[in-house]
């Protein structure tokens, strides 16, 4: 018994180390957001909020941030909305050309984004259509679809077909079966897929560079163009704000719900 516990603590330590490694650059970004020097490294030469103040007044970055959020959210919704049915088709049905189609739908990650970016523009030019937000959105959906598919399929494999068959034999319609049986079991993967789709879209540079019009530039595209002169620490400040939000919202929500639950218990 003792051996198992020590094995488990090794796993814990290992995981902790991976976390530290993964977050090292993030911590650096957040810390440097408070550095008054633009090119400061360590040791820091002071502490200031000036980049946060500048960020609050920078309408270009804030607009880009808004565009990124809208684009990412819509991408997540559309991508899972079309990805989940496709995963169902692959896992739950047998049909001709399944392997081929499965490969095809995962193909967007095989095509280097530079190529995909330019290729899509060539096609649009050939159709003689101007670029638009809709194009950018569908482009992102196609880019993120493989992730949704891979995650949802991997999960679907583990959900027993028997549950669904039982529901069907009890007279439920296929859609009811999906809603009542499959979807609840699938929900974690759907959520993970959405999260993935959102983050991939949110962080995408290369393809967005080519597809975005002047009206809907995103944060990564702005950063890419900042590379020429210098990346302002305002970007670090933006990162810091986002991280604080992402960490605090789930914690806060958890705290509220626990408090609420306690209240009910009494």
């Amino acid at each position: 018994m003792k051996k198992i516990i020590s094995g488990w603590s090794l796993i814990k330590i290992y995981t902790l180390l991976v976390y530290i490694w993964m977050f090292a650059p993030i911590v650096v970004v957040v810390v440097l957001a408070f550095n008054p020097q633009q090119f400061g490294t360590f040791p820091m030469e002071g502490f200031s909020f000036k980049w946060f103040v500048k960020l609050a007044h920078n309408s270009t970055i804030l607009d880009a941030f808004k565009n990124s959020m809208v684009l990412g959210s819509l991408t997540a919704i559309f991508s899972t909305a079309i990805g989940v049915p496709a995963a169902m088709a692959f896992i739950r049905y047998d049909f001709k050309g399944k392997d081929f189609l499965n490969t095809l739908l995962i193909a967007p990650i095989m095509v280097p984004e530079v190529v995909l970016g330019v290729a899509l523009l060539l096609f649009i030019r050939w159709l003689q259509q101007p670029k638009s937000f809709a194009l950018l959105l569908i482009g992102h959906v196609v880019l993120t679809l493989p992730y949704v598919l891979l995650i949802v399929q991997a999960r679907l494999v583990g959900i027993k077909k028997e549950y669904e068959e039982a529901a069907l034999s009890l007279g439920a319609s296929p859609f009811q079966t999906f809603r009542e049986i499959t979807f609840p079991l699938l929900a974690p993967a759907v959520f993970a897929g959405m999260l993935f789709a959102f983050t991939i879209s949110f962080d995408d540079v290369t393809a967005t560079l080519f597809w975005a019009t002047a009206h809907n530039q995103t944060v990564p595209v702005q950063i890419f163009s900042m590379l020429r002169n210098s990346i302002s620490p305002e970007i670090n400040a933006l990162g810091a704000v986002m991280i604080v939000l992402t960490i605090s919202i789930p914690l806060f929500a958890g705290y509220i719900s626990r408090k609420f639950a306690k209240g009910v218990d009494k």
């Binding site: 977050f23 650059p25 650096v28 970004v29 962080d203 540079v205 944060v219 990346i231 991280i243 960490i247």
Partner: peptide, 19 residues
């Protein structure tokens, strides 16, 4: 685990230089 994605890939990569 997904948090690093919130900070642009370019920034994260550049950040290694500081480390």
């Amino acid at each position: 685990v997904m948090l690093p994605f919130w900070i642009s890939f370019i920034i994260r990569t550049l950040s290694w230089i500081n480390i």
